[in-house]
């Protein structure tokens, strides 16, 4: 019954309710547009960026530290100026946004996978396993995510040999951020699983002898996923900020393939000599990206919340 009801609800969203709400909300439209621009700029960076900052052959050291447009000594081909090695800041931002988005989305996907599976098992299984998983989540939730991520990153650095770290840094970072965020999903999923598992369709599935694993992932999962998806949208922004913070602290993405956080960190060294654009423009890009995702996520949460209608 519930699955049918939620299916029609899904269809209704697509038919117009959600779309209508979207058309009526200027904030949602603007942030969706901004996000779309960011996404296009990031995804198609290798083809549309004015320069390739990683192609050493095209770099020209005489172009180094050119200021952005509108300032004395600006060069027409570099809209936002260049860094100390003559790399175009705008192109570096476009490539950096790519890495930031990749890490953010992958980390959120990992925490959703971890959190949803553990939450389902915990809520459906109950008993000691449930108690164990939830206490683990409690312990982790009482520390800020950044500490957990730093801990994982630090342990990975200690365990892995020195040379290997550069190659797997991105993976370590994704795992660190992903693992640091699972408890919120686990809690959400567990509480909706507890409600769903008493319903008739689950009992019916059990009676006809479907295995627990199939009940969990084919019957319960679709019905508990709604709130998780909204949470995940907003958490992409959190994950991107966390990635930028870790990279800024120097324990995230290595400077060879810089993310927005790494760009800010590198540019920070030039702040005192007056070359503010190397760090401020990537910072602005980060804020715009995060703000757009946050506003869109907030709108989505309110739009999908039947209590607010």
């Amino acid at each position: 019954m519930t699955s049918v009801a939620s299916q029609t609800r899904l269809a209704r969203w697509w038919d117009g309710d959600l779309a209508y709400g979207f058309r009526r909300s200027p904030v949602a439209i603007v942030s969706a547009l901004v996000l779309a621009v960011c996404l296009v700029a990031a995804l198609f960076a290798p083809w549309i960026a004015p320069h390739n900052p990683f192609d050493l052959a095209t770099l020209n050291l005489t172009d180094a530290l050119a200021p952005p447009h509108g300032m004395a000594g600006a060069r027409p081909e570099y809209l936002l100026g260049t860094d100390d090695q003559g790399r175009d800041v705008l192109s570096a931002i476009m490539f950096g946004t790519r890495i930031s988005l990749l890490v953010g989305v992958a980390a959120v996907a990992l925490s959703v996978m971890l959190g949803v599976s553990l939450g389902l098992v915990s809520g459906y299984g109950g008993g000691r396993l449930d108690a164990f998983i939830m206490r683990a989540a409690d312990v982790q939730l009482s520390f800020p995510a950044i500490l957990i991520a730093l801990l994982i990153d630090g342990v990975a650095r200690a365990v892995l040999p020195r040379g290997a770290h550069g190659d797997v840094a991105l993976v370590v970072l994704i795992v660190a951020i992903g693992v640091s965020n699972w408890p919120t999903y686990a809690r959400t999923v567990r509480s909706s699983t507890l409600v769903e598992k008493g319903k008739e369709y689950v009992q019916a599935a059990r009676v006809i002898g479907i295995t627990p694993a199939a009940i969990l992932f084919r019957h319960l999962l679709p019905n508990v996923l709604g709130p998780v998806l909204v949470l995940a949208t907003i958490n992409i922004a959190t994950a991107i900020v966390l990635e930028a913070t870790l990279s800024f602290l120097g324990v995230g993405v290595p400077p060879t393939r810089p993310s927005l956080g790494t760009l800010i960190r590198v540019g920070n060294d030039f702040l005192f000599s007056g070359e503010w654009w190397i760090t401020i423009f990537p910072g602005a890009a980060l804020v715009i990206l995060v703000l757009a995702i946050n506003l869109l996520g907030d709108w989505l949460r309110d739009a999908l919340n039947p209590k607010l209608k």
């Binding site: 900020v241 930028a244 913070t245 800024f248 602290l249 800010i264 920070n268 702040l271 005192f272 007056g274 503010w276 760090t279 401020i280 910072g283 980060l286 804020v287 995060v290 703000l291 946050n294």
Partner: peptide, 25 residues
Amino acid sequence: VSLPTFLIGILLILIFAVILGWLPS
């Protein structure tokens, strides 16, 4: 809420330490 902490720090340094020169950074 939406600005990351380290960006706030960088902005404050830029304004009060680099441009105005009032406070140590």
